[in-house]
């Protein structure tokens, strides 16, 4: 497969060490609600399962990437000394691809069914970062990276920078860090920006999709700053209310199957491709309807 190692494998010991530091810190600060054993177990077993699922599908994804790369527009090499600028460019374009994927993952139910796992905790700590999908391959989320192979970035380079992107996103899943220097908050994704992304408060729904660079949200109108005026509630609009690992991994897929089965023929596809919460009779809430109701309430 790839001629480069997966950087995430090397980061795992640091993930564990940082979680232990955060646990010690919240205990010291008496923030006893920050972690709970059941939630942590669910997050970490979902993370472990996600790694196994990723290994099982990696060969197929890599083969597909290699095939798409045969149609590349440019011939870009891997050697860091000759192609250092390509590595930087690849990292930035991959982060843009991540933004597009992530936005779609919140706006198209098919992609959401896989991504919802990451948002299914009502807690927000470093273990939440590891609460990752088991069904990424099924959701065909890898299609968002295909343009990079068509440009000419070698698959090994793309998967390596994607690993770095994932590692960056680990540390922003914490309440232990408040705000960082203004210049950093302006350009980079930070714990403050990402807390907004995980919030279910109406003002924060479907905001801050960035992976590494928050500039994408600022550019495409999806940025929302964190405000001290409102306590953040994490999780889902309709929380699953269970620590069952398997249910957390598949509940939205089950929901899609149920809805498609019950829906009239002309609405079946919409239960797959429309935004989460969409229903043909308007009986459910989407993030748009919740936000609209909140704005309306604010006017009164």
């Amino acid at each position: 497969m790839s001629e480069l190692p997966n950087p995430v494998d090397f980061a795992v010991p640091a993930f564990v060490a940082l979680m232990l530091v955060e646990i010690w810190l919240v205990r010291r600060r008496k923030q006893t609600r920050a972690y709970s054993p059941g939630d942590t177990a669910t997050s970490l077993f979902l993370g472990l399962g996600s790694t196994v699922a990723g290994v099982l599908s990696a060969g197929l994804v890599y083969a597909l990437a290699t095939w798409v790369h045969t149609f590349a527009l440019f011939d870009i090499g891997l050697d860091l000394r000759s192609w250092w600028w390509a590595w930087i460019l690849c990292f930035v374009i991959d982060d843009l691809a991540y933004y597009v994927f992530h936005r779609s993952a919140h706006r198209v139910r098919w992609f959401w069914a896989s991504h919802v796992i990451h948002h299914s905790s009502q807690h927000y700590n470093l273990s939440t970062a590891l609460r990752q999908t088991w069904t990424g391959f099924l959701s065909i989320a890898f299609i968002f990276r295909l343009p990079l192979f068509l440009i000419g970035f070698p698959p090994a380079m793309v998967f390596f920078v994607a690993g770095l992107n994932l590692i960056y996103q680990f540390w922003i899943h914490t309440e232990a860090i408040d705000r960082l220097p203004r210049w950093f908050e302006a350009v980079m994704n930070t714990p403050s920006h990402h807390r907004v992304h995980h919030a279910t408060n109406a003002r924060y729904l479907d905001r801050n999709y960035a992976g590494v660079f928050i500039v994408w949200d600022r550019m495409f109108g999806t940025f929302e700053p964190e405000t001290e005026a409102e306590t953040i509630r994490y999780g889902l609009v309709n929380n699953i209310g269970s620590f069952n690992v398997l249910w957390a991994a598949v509940h939205e897929w089950v929901g899609i199957v149920r809805d498609v089965w019950r829906a009239p023929w002309r609405h079946k596809l919409n239960y797959v491709i429309r935004e989460p919460g969409w229903s043909h009779d308007g009986s459910r809430d989407t993030s748009d309807t919740i936000r609209a109701a909140w704005l309306e309430k604010g006017k009164q």
Partner: peptide, 19 residues
């Protein structure tokens, strides 16, 4: 990884978090 997962869960439990 499994050992690390169990160690983190044990730490959360031993420190009495999650009340």
């Amino acid at each position: 990884s499994l050992v690390a997962v169990l160690a983190v869960i044990a730490a959360v439990k031993l420190l009495g978090l999650g009340r």
